[in-house]
Nucleic acid binder design. Sequence first.
DNA 1: GTCTATACCCGGATAGAC
DNA 2: GTCTATCCGGGTATAGAC
Lengths: 173, 173
Amino acid sequence: MQERRDEIVAAATELLEREGADALSMRRIAERVGIRAASIYKHFPSKEALEAAIISVAFERQAAVFERAEHDLVAIAEAYRSFAREHPHLYRLMTERPLRRDLLGPGAEARAAAPLVGATGGDADVARAAWAFAHGMTILELNDRFPPGADLDEAWARGLSAFTRKGRDKRDR
Amino acid sequence: MQERRDEIVAAATELLEREGADALSMRRIAERVGIRAASIYKHFPSKEALEAAIISVAFERQAAVFERAEHDLVAIAEAYRSFAREHPHLYRLMTERPLRRDLLGPGAEARAAAPLVGATGGDADVARAAWAFAHGMTILELNDRFPPGADLDEAWARGLSAFTRKGRDKRDR
DNA sequence: GTCTATACCCGGATAGAC
DNA sequence: GTCTATCCGGGTATAGAC
Protein backbone atom coordinates (compact mmCIF):
# COMPACT_ATOMS: atom_id res chain seq x y z
CA MET A 1 0.00 0.00 0.00
CA GLN A 2 2.62 2.51 -1.01
CA GLU A 3 0.07 3.87 -3.43
CA ARG A 4 -1.51 6.07 -0.81
CA ARG A 5 1.88 7.43 0.13
CA ASP A 6 2.60 8.30 -3.47
CA GLU A 7 -0.83 9.83 -3.78
CA ILE A 8 -0.12 12.11 -0.83
CA VAL A 9 3.22 13.17 -2.29
CA ALA A 10 1.61 13.89 -5.64
CA ALA A 11 -1.21 15.89 -4.08
CA ALA A 12 1.22 17.86 -1.95
CA THR A 13 3.43 18.61 -4.94
CA GLU A 14 0.49 19.86 -6.98
CA LEU A 15 -0.71 22.02 -4.11
CA LEU A 16 2.75 23.47 -3.65
CA GLU A 17 3.18 24.22 -7.33
CA ARG A 18 -0.20 25.91 -7.59
CA GLU A 19 -0.32 27.91 -4.39
CA GLY A 20 3.16 28.13 -2.95
CA ALA A 21 4.81 27.10 0.27
CA ASP A 22 2.38 28.92 2.56
CA ALA A 23 -0.46 26.76 1.29
CA LEU A 24 1.43 23.55 2.00
CA SER A 25 -0.16 22.67 5.32
CA MET A 26 -1.05 19.18 6.46
CA ARG A 27 -4.71 20.18 6.45
CA ARG A 28 -4.66 21.49 2.89
CA ILE A 29 -2.75 18.47 1.64
CA ALA A 30 -5.17 16.10 3.31
CA GLU A 31 -8.11 17.98 1.85
CA ARG A 32 -6.77 17.37 -1.64
CA VAL A 33 -6.35 13.67 -0.99
CA GLY A 34 -9.79 13.42 0.52
CA ILE A 35 -8.72 12.46 4.03
CA ARG A 36 -8.05 14.24 7.32
CA ALA A 37 -4.73 15.76 8.30
CA ALA A 38 -4.26 13.32 11.16
CA SER A 39 -4.31 10.40 8.72
CA ILE A 40 -1.21 11.62 6.92
CA TYR A 41 0.77 10.75 10.03
CA LYS A 42 0.06 7.07 9.34
CA HIS A 43 2.15 7.48 6.18
CA PHE A 44 4.75 10.04 7.21
CA PRO A 45 6.19 10.64 10.66
CA SER A 46 6.33 14.41 10.22
CA LYS A 47 5.74 17.19 7.78
CA GLU A 48 9.48 17.39 7.24
CA ALA A 49 9.54 13.77 6.05
CA LEU A 50 6.73 14.47 3.62
CA GLU A 51 8.59 17.48 2.27
CA ALA A 52 11.67 15.35 1.80
CA ALA A 53 9.60 12.91 -0.23
CA ILE A 54 8.38 15.78 -2.41
CA ILE A 55 11.96 16.87 -2.95
CA SER A 56 13.14 13.35 -3.74
CA VAL A 57 10.60 13.01 -6.52
CA ALA A 58 11.53 16.46 -7.80
CA PHE A 59 15.22 15.50 -7.97
CA GLU A 60 14.30 12.49 -10.08
CA ARG A 61 12.27 14.66 -12.41
CA GLN A 62 15.20 17.05 -12.70
CA ALA A 63 17.61 14.21 -13.36
CA ALA A 64 15.42 12.90 -16.18
CA VAL A 65 15.35 16.33 -17.80
CA PHE A 66 19.06 17.04 -17.42
CA GLU A 67 20.05 13.68 -18.83
CA ARG A 68 18.36 14.59 -22.09
CA ALA A 69 20.86 17.47 -22.45
CA GLU A 70 23.80 15.19 -21.93
CA HIS A 71 27.27 16.67 -21.73
CA ASP A 72 26.28 20.04 -23.13
CA LEU A 73 26.63 22.70 -20.47
CA VAL A 74 24.52 25.28 -22.27
CA ALA A 75 21.70 22.80 -22.85
CA ILE A 76 21.80 21.73 -19.21
CA ALA A 77 21.68 25.35 -18.11
CA GLU A 78 18.65 25.95 -20.30
CA ALA A 79 16.94 22.89 -18.86
CA TYR A 80 17.82 24.04 -15.35
CA ARG A 81 16.32 27.46 -15.89
CA SER A 82 13.24 26.05 -17.58
CA PHE A 83 12.57 23.61 -14.77
CA ALA A 84 12.69 26.41 -12.23
CA ARG A 85 10.45 28.71 -14.26
CA GLU A 86 7.91 25.96 -14.74
CA HIS A 87 7.94 24.92 -11.09
CA PRO A 88 9.04 27.99 -9.13
CA HIS A 89 7.57 27.01 -5.76
CA LEU A 90 8.95 23.51 -6.06
CA TYR A 91 12.35 24.89 -7.00
CA ARG A 92 12.32 27.10 -3.94
CA LEU A 93 11.45 24.21 -1.68
CA MET A 94 14.36 22.28 -3.17
CA THR A 95 16.96 24.99 -2.71
CA GLU A 96 16.18 27.56 -0.07
CA ARG A 97 16.79 25.49 3.04
CA PRO A 98 19.36 22.98 4.19
CA LEU A 99 18.57 19.56 2.75
CA ARG A 100 17.48 16.77 5.06
CA ARG A 101 19.63 14.28 3.16
CA ASP A 102 18.88 11.57 5.72
CA LEU A 103 15.23 11.71 4.65
CA LEU A 104 15.79 11.73 0.90
CA GLY A 105 15.52 8.78 -1.44
CA PRO A 106 19.00 7.26 -1.80
CA GLY A 107 20.98 8.74 -4.65
CA ALA A 108 18.29 11.18 -5.77
CA GLU A 109 20.41 14.26 -5.18
CA ALA A 110 23.43 12.70 -6.87
CA ARG A 111 21.44 11.68 -9.94
CA ALA A 112 20.21 15.23 -10.41
CA ALA A 113 23.74 16.58 -10.08
CA ALA A 114 25.51 14.03 -12.30
CA PRO A 115 24.81 15.59 -15.71
CA LEU A 116 26.36 18.91 -14.69
CA VAL A 117 29.43 17.25 -13.26
CA GLY A 118 29.82 15.34 -16.51
CA ALA A 119 29.41 18.47 -18.60
CA THR A 120 32.18 20.28 -16.76
CA GLY A 121 34.67 17.55 -17.53
CA GLY A 122 34.61 16.07 -14.05
CA ASP A 123 36.23 19.13 -12.44
CA ALA A 124 34.27 19.44 -9.21
CA ASP A 125 35.33 23.03 -8.53
CA VAL A 126 34.16 24.18 -11.93
CA ALA A 127 30.95 22.20 -11.56
CA ARG A 128 30.24 23.93 -8.23
CA ALA A 129 30.98 27.34 -9.67
CA ALA A 130 28.73 26.66 -12.65
CA TRP A 131 25.95 25.41 -10.39
CA ALA A 132 26.26 28.49 -8.18
CA PHE A 133 25.99 30.72 -11.23
CA ALA A 134 22.96 28.85 -12.54
CA HIS A 135 21.24 28.85 -9.17
CA GLY A 136 22.02 32.52 -8.63
CA MET A 137 20.60 33.56 -11.99
CA THR A 138 17.60 31.34 -11.48
CA ILE A 139 16.60 32.34 -7.98
CA LEU A 140 17.27 36.04 -8.53
CA GLU A 141 15.03 35.85 -11.58
CA LEU A 142 12.30 34.01 -9.65
CA ASN A 143 12.53 36.62 -6.92
CA ASP A 144 12.31 39.49 -9.40
CA ARG A 145 15.60 40.92 -8.29
CA PHE A 146 16.90 42.07 -11.65
CA PRO A 147 15.78 45.42 -13.04
CA PRO A 148 12.73 45.34 -15.32
CA GLY A 149 14.62 45.85 -18.55
CA ALA A 150 17.51 43.49 -17.82
CA ASP A 151 18.54 41.17 -20.66
CA LEU A 152 18.79 37.95 -18.72
CA ASP A 153 19.55 35.82 -21.75
CA GLU A 154 22.65 37.92 -22.24
CA ALA A 155 23.65 37.67 -18.59
CA TRP A 156 23.27 33.89 -18.80
CA ALA A 157 25.43 33.83 -21.92
CA ARG A 158 28.12 35.96 -20.31
CA GLY A 159 28.28 33.76 -17.27
CA LEU A 160 28.13 30.45 -19.04
CA SER A 161 30.91 31.32 -21.43
CA ALA A 162 33.19 31.24 -18.41
CA PHE A 163 32.66 27.56 -17.96
CA THR A 164 32.97 26.40 -21.55
CA ARG A 165 36.10 26.12 -23.68
CA LYS A 166 34.20 27.44 -26.68
CA GLY A 167 32.97 30.44 -24.77
CA ARG A 168 36.44 31.43 -23.71
CA ASP A 169 37.80 31.14 -27.24
CA LYS A 170 35.03 33.29 -28.57
CA ARG A 171 35.39 35.99 -25.95
CA ASP A 172 39.14 36.21 -26.09
CA ARG A 173 39.39 36.14 -29.85
CA MET B 1 10.74 61.21 17.39
CA GLN B 2 12.28 59.01 14.80
CA GLU B 3 14.50 57.63 17.54
CA ARG B 4 11.90 55.14 18.64
CA ARG B 5 11.50 53.99 15.05
CA ASP B 6 15.24 53.47 14.71
CA GLU B 7 15.28 51.68 18.03
CA ILE B 8 12.65 49.24 16.79
CA VAL B 9 14.55 48.59 13.58
CA ALA B 10 17.76 48.00 15.52
CA ALA B 11 16.07 45.64 17.95
CA ALA B 12 14.41 43.74 15.13
CA THR B 13 17.69 43.42 13.26
CA GLU B 14 19.46 42.07 16.32
CA LEU B 15 16.68 39.61 16.99
CA LEU B 16 16.75 38.44 13.37
CA GLU B 17 20.51 38.01 13.35
CA ARG B 18 20.52 36.06 16.60
CA GLU B 19 17.51 33.81 16.16
CA GLY B 20 16.52 33.80 12.53
CA ALA B 21 13.42 34.72 10.58
CA ASP B 22 11.02 32.53 12.56
CA ALA B 23 11.77 34.52 15.70
CA LEU B 24 11.03 37.80 14.00
CA SER B 25 7.47 38.31 15.22
CA MET B 26 5.93 41.58 16.27
CA ARG B 27 5.60 40.25 19.81
CA ARG B 28 9.25 39.24 20.07
CA ILE B 29 10.45 42.50 18.58
CA ALA B 30 8.32 44.51 20.97
CA GLU B 31 9.59 42.48 23.89
CA ARG B 32 13.15 43.48 23.06
CA VAL B 33 12.22 47.15 22.86
CA GLY B 34 10.32 46.96 26.11
CA ILE B 35 6.89 47.74 24.69
CA ARG B 36 3.87 45.78 23.47
CA ALA B 37 3.41 44.50 19.95
CA ALA B 38 0.42 46.74 19.37
CA SER B 39 2.57 49.83 19.94
CA ILE B 40 4.79 49.03 16.99
CA TYR B 41 1.87 49.87 14.73
CA LYS B 42 2.16 53.49 15.80
CA HIS B 43 5.57 53.53 14.08
CA PHE B 44 5.06 51.13 11.18
CA PRO B 45 1.86 50.40 9.28
CA SER B 46 2.64 46.71 8.90
CA LYS B 47 5.24 44.07 9.53
CA GLU B 48 6.21 44.26 5.88
CA ALA B 49 7.08 47.93 6.26
CA LEU B 50 9.22 47.17 9.28
CA GLU B 51 11.04 44.46 7.36
CA ALA B 52 11.65 46.88 4.54
CA ALA B 53 13.22 49.27 7.03
CA ILE B 54 15.50 46.49 8.28
CA ILE B 55 16.52 45.76 4.70
CA SER B 56 17.14 49.42 3.90
CA VAL B 57 19.57 49.73 6.79
CA ALA B 58 21.24 46.49 5.74
CA PHE B 59 21.75 47.79 2.20
CA GLU B 60 23.47 50.85 3.59
CA ARG B 61 25.75 48.71 5.72
CA GLN B 62 26.56 46.60 2.68
CA ALA B 63 27.25 49.68 0.59
CA ALA B 64 29.68 50.99 3.19
CA VAL B 65 31.57 47.70 3.19
CA PHE B 66 31.68 47.31 -0.57
CA GLU B 67 32.89 50.83 -1.12
CA ARG B 68 35.99 50.03 0.87
CA ALA B 69 36.89 47.41 -1.78
CA GLU B 70 36.54 49.89 -4.59
CA HIS B 71 36.85 48.71 -8.15
CA ASP B 72 38.43 45.39 -7.27
CA LEU B 73 36.05 42.57 -8.14
CA VAL B 74 37.82 39.97 -6.05
CA ALA B 75 37.85 42.21 -3.00
CA ILE B 76 34.17 43.01 -3.44
CA ALA B 77 33.39 39.32 -3.74
CA GLU B 78 35.24 38.64 -0.51
CA ALA B 79 33.37 41.41 1.24
CA TYR B 80 30.10 40.10 -0.15
CA ARG B 81 30.75 36.61 1.13
CA SER B 82 31.94 37.88 4.51
CA PHE B 83 28.88 40.02 5.02
CA ALA B 84 26.61 37.05 4.36
CA ARG B 85 28.55 34.73 6.65
CA GLU B 86 28.52 37.27 9.44
CA HIS B 87 24.81 38.03 9.03
CA PRO B 88 23.27 34.92 7.49
CA HIS B 89 19.68 35.52 8.60
CA LEU B 90 19.83 39.14 7.55
CA TYR B 91 21.28 38.13 4.19
CA ARG B 92 18.42 35.68 3.68
CA LEU B 93 15.84 38.32 4.48
CA MET B 94 17.49 40.61 1.94
CA THR B 95 17.56 38.11 -0.89
CA GLU B 96 15.09 35.30 -0.64
CA ARG B 97 11.90 37.16 -1.47
CA PRO B 98 10.82 39.78 -3.95
CA LEU B 99 11.87 43.22 -2.72
CA ARG B 100 9.23 45.72 -1.72
CA ARG B 101 11.12 48.52 -3.43
CA ASP B 102 8.27 50.96 -2.77
CA LEU B 103 8.92 50.58 0.96
CA LEU B 104 12.70 50.90 0.86
CA GLY B 105 14.73 53.97 1.63
CA PRO B 106 15.36 55.81 -1.65
CA GLY B 107 18.54 54.72 -3.37
CA ALA B 108 19.54 52.16 -0.78
CA GLU B 109 19.48 49.24 -3.18
CA ALA B 110 21.36 51.18 -5.85
CA ARG B 111 24.09 52.26 -3.42
CA ALA B 112 24.72 48.66 -2.42
CA ALA B 113 24.91 47.61 -6.07
CA ALA B 114 27.06 50.45 -7.36
CA PRO B 115 30.51 49.11 -6.38
CA LEU B 116 29.96 45.87 -8.28
CA VAL B 117 28.76 47.67 -11.37
CA GLY B 118 31.86 49.84 -11.21
CA ALA B 119 34.14 46.85 -10.80
CA THR B 120 32.80 45.16 -13.91
CA GLY B 121 33.60 48.15 -16.05
CA GLY B 122 30.03 49.33 -16.30
CA ASP B 123 28.88 46.33 -18.35
CA ALA B 124 25.48 45.60 -16.81
CA ASP B 125 25.23 42.08 -18.22
CA VAL B 126 28.56 41.10 -16.76
CA ALA B 127 27.67 42.75 -13.46
CA ARG B 128 24.44 40.74 -13.29
CA ALA B 129 26.24 37.51 -14.11
CA ALA B 130 28.88 38.22 -11.47
CA TRP B 131 26.22 39.06 -8.90
CA ALA B 132 24.34 35.85 -9.71
CA PHE B 133 27.51 33.85 -9.26
CA ALA B 134 28.32 35.54 -5.95
CA HIS B 135 24.78 35.13 -4.65
CA GLY B 136 24.63 31.51 -5.76
CA MET B 137 27.90 30.61 -4.04
CA THR B 138 26.86 32.52 -0.95
CA ILE B 139 23.37 31.18 -0.48
CA LEU B 140 24.31 27.61 -1.34
CA GLU B 141 27.06 27.82 1.25
CA LEU B 142 24.69 29.28 3.85
CA ASN B 143 22.23 26.50 3.11
CA ASP B 144 24.91 23.82 3.41
CA ARG B 145 24.31 22.61 -0.09
CA PHE B 146 27.89 21.83 -1.07
CA PRO B 147 29.43 18.50 -0.06
CA PRO B 148 31.33 18.51 3.25
CA GLY B 149 34.79 18.38 1.70
CA ALA B 150 34.18 20.92 -1.04
CA ASP B 151 36.90 23.54 -1.55
CA LEU B 152 34.73 26.61 -1.79
CA ASP B 153 37.64 29.02 -2.00
CA GLU B 154 38.66 27.24 -5.17
CA ALA B 155 35.12 27.29 -6.58
CA TRP B 156 34.97 31.04 -5.88
CA ALA B 157 38.30 31.51 -7.65
CA ARG B 158 37.20 29.52 -10.69
CA GLY B 159 33.99 31.47 -11.02
CA LEU B 160 35.47 34.89 -10.40
CA SER B 161 38.22 34.44 -12.94
CA ALA B 162 35.48 34.46 -15.55
CA PHE B 163 34.68 38.05 -14.81
CA THR B 164 38.19 39.49 -14.63
CA ARG B 165 40.64 40.08 -17.44
CA LYS B 166 43.49 38.86 -15.29
CA GLY B 167 41.68 35.63 -14.49
CA ARG B 168 41.12 34.85 -18.12
CA ASP B 169 44.73 35.49 -19.05
CA LYS B 170 45.92 33.22 -16.30
CA ARG B 171 43.58 30.37 -17.13
CA ASP B 172 44.21 30.44 -20.86
CA ARG B 173 47.94 30.77 -20.62
C1' DG C 1 2.40 56.70 22.06
C1' DT C 2 1.57 53.26 25.16
C1' DC C 3 -1.48 50.11 27.27
C1' DT C 4 -5.05 46.03 27.77
C1' DA C 5 -8.01 43.13 25.61
C1' DT C 6 -9.29 40.70 21.95
C1' DA C 7 -10.71 39.33 17.24
C1' DC C 8 -9.53 36.19 14.01
C1' DC C 9 -6.93 33.03 11.88
C1' DC C 10 -3.58 29.53 11.23
C1' DG C 11 -0.09 25.78 12.27
C1' DG C 12 1.87 20.69 13.67
C1' DA C 13 0.91 16.98 16.13
C1' DT C 14 -1.36 13.33 19.37
C1' DA C 15 -5.04 10.24 21.74
C1' DG C 16 -8.12 6.97 21.32
C1' DA C 17 -12.37 5.02 19.07
C1' DC C 18 -13.59 2.29 15.21
C1' DG D 1 -5.72 3.45 8.11
C1' DT D 2 -9.24 6.46 8.87
C1' DC D 3 -11.91 9.26 11.88
C1' DT D 4 -13.22 12.98 15.65
C1' DA D 5 -11.72 15.77 19.09
C1' DT D 6 -8.35 18.24 21.03
C1' DC D 7 -3.91 20.14 22.75
C1' DC D 8 -0.92 23.79 22.61
C1' DG D 9 1.20 27.02 20.35
C1' DG D 10 1.78 30.83 17.36
C1' DG D 11 0.82 34.85 14.21
C1' DT D 12 -0.88 39.94 12.40
C1' DA D 13 -3.65 43.36 13.41
C1' DT D 14 -7.44 46.48 15.53
C1' DA D 15 -10.42 49.01 19.15
C1' DG D 16 -10.60 51.99 22.57
C1' DA D 17 -8.98 53.72 27.20
C1' DC D 18 -5.53 56.62 29.11
